[in-house]
């Protein structure tokens, strides 16, 4: 199968939406997979995925840890895969895989309904992992530090291009000058409607509030898209 063959490095915009849909379909189990069940009892359980992205040291790990039971997750990526995207495998010679660590947390809403949080690895060379992480994601939190706002540009670009609903959460480090949500929204040139939330990544309630805003917003975005998609047909019919 050709899953993930249209990975693009930092240029999500060049991958057409149709191509994205193919990749997303491929990431799941194929239809005739033996033993794959969809709707029976236990496996009707629902898992929702939320990504936490942002620049280096902005508080991603802190946020995931504040709201969920956090565990480190190791992926062992083949350098051949990564090497297709970045040409820095020279000098690593015989090492065939490289470890990428991610933050991973689970919030159990009730039996059969869980939220899974994934802190995305920050370095650019692991961007190909984002494509997998963002497949089927409910939405994303982009953490920002007003002292280094530009650090979150790549994440904002990425989610905007992929049309993944996201909120910007400004982590209010004590030393940082306070800006209003509106200033941040303007500075980041966010699409209209994208929520900006001020937060303290260390604080559980504050982290919860960020997630709530995201889920509310993601719900609105999806509903709007649904209405958009049925709109023209209803008009012509």
């Amino acid at each position: 199968m050709g899953q993930h063959d249209n990975r693009t490095f930092g240029s999500a915009g060049s991958a057409g939406r149709a191509g994205d849909a193919d990749t997303e379909a491929d990431a799941g189990a194929p239809d005739a997979e033996p033993g794959t069940v969809e709707e029976d009892g236990e496996l009707a359980a629902l898992a929702l995925k939320i990504l936490v992205a942002g620049g280096f040291g902005v508080g991603k790990t802190t946020l995931v840890g504040a709201v969920s039971e956090i565990r480190p997750l190791r992926t062992e990526e083949q350098l051949s895969e990564a090497g297709e995207l970045v040409d820095d495998t020279d000098g690593v010679d015989h090492k065939t895989t490289t470890t990428v660590a991610m933050d991973f947390g689970r919030i159990t809403i009730r039996s059969g309904l869980s939220l899974y949080l994934f802190g995305t690895p920050g370095q650019d060379r692991f961007w190909f992992l984002w494509d997998e992480l963002s497949t089927g994601a409910l939405g994303a939190v982009v953490l920002a530090d007003t002292r280094r706002l530009e650090d979150c540009f790549p994440a904002v670009d990425y989610f905007e291009h992929r049309r993944i609903p996201f909120v910007v959460a400004v982590n209010c480090f004590t030393e940082a000058r306070r800006y209003g949500a509106h200033d941040v929204s303007r500075a980041l040139d966010l699409e209209q409607g994208t929520p900006v939330v001020l937060c303290d990544a260390r604080d559980r309630d504050s982290g919860k509030e960020v997630l709530i805003r995201l889920v509310e917003y993601a719900g609105r975005v999806h509903t709007a898209r649904l209405l958009d998609s049925v709109g023209p047909q209803a008009g012509s019919g």
Partner: peptide
């Protein structure tokens, strides 16, 4: 047995 991930087009309904 392994469940299919939720396809993005079928994200959970409002109730969920």
């Amino acid at each position: 047995k392994v469940s299919r991930p939720v396809p993005p087009a079928q994200l959970p309904d409002e109730r969920i």
